[in-house]
Design a protein around this nucleic acid. Structure first.
Length: 366
DNA sequence: CATTCGTGGTT
DNA sequence: TAACCAAGAAT
């Protein structure tokens, strides 16, 4: 463990202020102007379990379309969900909108400035509350994400597996965090984890704080942090129903508010079940009467805890059957803009006018 | 404490 | 290519 917390922070902050920042939308380190809490909140929500490269374009679009928390609060929920489509973890979008409305209506558009106050907002957990408090408000908060966990586990040679080691790591990071520039310190720790203290093959030779690292001293840095064993991923199967109206429009449906892809649009399908696909039972879940014909190949998609295989069946209902289904009919040219989750875009790619390069290979093949 | 929740980049 | 991994939160 570092002999001197103060000099550790000094070394790390010196490195951070010298090296290229990984988040271009953030203010320069040590900047006098305080960052906009709304922008910090928005970026931190988007960055939960999401890479900077993936979140960046979404962040720019959201900020341009809804420049303040009041603007976001005033937006229809479907617009926010549609704008989030493709980014994943859709509860973040639902919570984002709910939190915006709460801040706008209960707090007059002003964000809470303390960790505790922020923590009460939907979608804001321990990490995000600490990050906003430190970065936007200069509060001395212990910011612990997966990067910081890895850095701390190596720095202090924590051999207890995660997640059991979380309290211990959090306590040590709290001791390490300086009162001056806690936001820069937090971002420095995260950047160090992302750029130098990487999961595999950490670049210890380039590390500004290698001299303080107990894990390196013991020669076990790369093997840390340790993790509890992971569970295997099952496969679920279903039939997806591609209903095509005579004018080419496709039938979509909105999913229930809770659970997987909650509140998002989908291509109607039979229930997603583990084990072999019972074709007859699956076809009984068709949203309307039609002559269903199998499309070639399978659409496959891997979620966090299971794999999905969709057999796509196409049907062209007659005029009398059109009204049987509840949902909305979307023209092929609008499919790209209505806001479909990625898994559903893989299905609709089968009928979109000009399939983009995104899913051209691999998605519908076998 | 374990599970549920997406997606895309890296190795 | 399959496995790994991510600026986590809610339940």
């Amino acid at each position: 463990m570092p002999a001197d917390f103060h000099s550790f922070a000094t070394e790390l902050l010196g490195w951070y202020r010298r090296h290229a920042r990984s988040l271009p939308w953030r203010l320069p380190p040590g900047s006098a102007a305080p960052p906009d809490p709304y922008a910090v909140w928005l970026s931190e929500i988007m960055l939960q379990q999401t890479t900077v490269a993936a979140a960046g374009p979404y962040f720019s679009r959201f900020l341009a379309r809804w420049p303040s928390v009041r603007d976001l609060a005033a937006a229809p929920r479907e617009d926010v969900l549609a704008a989030w489509a493709g980014l994943g973890y859709y509860s973040r979008a639902r919570n984002l909108h709910a939190a915006a409305r709460h801040v706008a209506e209960a707090f007059g558009g002003v964000f809470p400035s303390t960790e505790e106050g922020l923590r009460a907002l939907p979608g804001v957990g321990p990490y995000t509350a600490a990050a906003i408090a430190a970065i936007a408000f200069g509060e001395r908060a212990a910011v612990v994400d997966a990067n910081v966990e890895r850095v701390a586990a190596r720095l202090f040679a924590v051999e207890t597996p995660l997640p059991a080691a979380k309290p211990e790591i959090r306590e040590k990071v709290g001791l390490l965090t300086p009162a001056a520039a806690p936001g820069d310190f937090a971002q420095a720790m995260m950047d160090l984890g992302a750029l130098v203290c990487s999961p595999k093959r950490p670049q210890c030779a380039a590390c500004p704080v290698a001299a303080y690292c107990e894990g390196r001293a013991r020669g076990i840095a790369e093997s840390l942090p340790r993790f509890a064993p992971k569970k295997a991923r099952a496969t679920r199967r279903a039939v997806a129903f591609l209903c095509l109206r005579s004018d080419g429009a496709v039938l979509l449906r909105r999913r229930p508010d809770k659970g997987l892809l909650g509140g998002m649009l989908e291509v109607p399908s039979s229930p997603w079940a583990e084990g072999a696909l019972d074709l007859e039972a699956a076809l009984a879940h068709a949203p309307l009467r039609a002559r269903w014909r199998a499309r070639a190949g399978l659409v496959t998609h891997t979620f966090t805890h299971f794999r999905l295989e969709l057999a796509v069946y196409e049907g062209r209902p007659g005029a009398s059957a059109i009204g049987e289904a509840d949902g909305l009919w979307v023209a092929p040219s609008d499919l790209a803009t209505v806001g479909l989750p990625t898994v559903m875009r893989k299905v609709t790619a089968l009928v979109e006018p000009a399939p983009g390069p995104l899913f051209a290979a691999g998605s519908a093949g076998r």
